[in-house]
Design a protein around this nucleic acid. Structure first.
Length: 120
DNA sequence: TCCTTGACTCAGA
DNA sequence: CTCTGAGCCAAGG
């Protein structure tokens, strides 16, 4: 929802979506990494950004346009960051499996294998 | 105005 | 591997 937002919320979200759209099929990335690739606003100090960037990315995912492959974004543990029983959870899992991503018996994705190296 | 609450992460037990 | 707690910030009830 609307917990703390970056100075230019819409700008930030747009940047996040742009990066997420670069994630190739069959690969995933994490909130924290994506936050790290989004240019940090001058008005924010690094430590605040480190603590909140990931959550803002989450906020961006919650409000992303249809053309954004939000399902390719998981938390740093390689797990889907949604309630395990929610509809969104199963939806995301299915989309990822359809792309060839494998979940182990604990519903965890092996980031070593499926993690994306980033836009650079 | 006070209190709860987030699609997070990291370190420690 | 699982579970806690701390960190960090602002909107909304």
């Amino acid at each position: 929802m609307k917990y703390s937002s970056p100075p230019d919320k819409l700008i930030f979200y747009a940047q996040v979506w742009e990066i997420v759209r670069m994630i190739p099929p069959g690969r995933v990335s994490t909130y924290g990494k994506i936050a790290g690739w989004v240019p940090i606003a001058q008005t924010l100090n690094p430590q605040s950004y480190r603590a909140w960037g990931a959550r803002w990315v989450g906020g961006a995912m919650a409000n992303c346009p249809e053309d954004v492959p939000w399902q390719r974004v998981v938390n740093s543990q390689g797990k889907i960051s949604l309630p395990a029983n929610s509809k969104g959870y199963s939806h995301q899992k299915k989309l990822l499996e359809d792309e060839g991503i494998i979940f182990n018996n604990q519903d965890v994705i092996d980031l070593k294998r499926f993690g994306w190296n980033g836009p650079a």
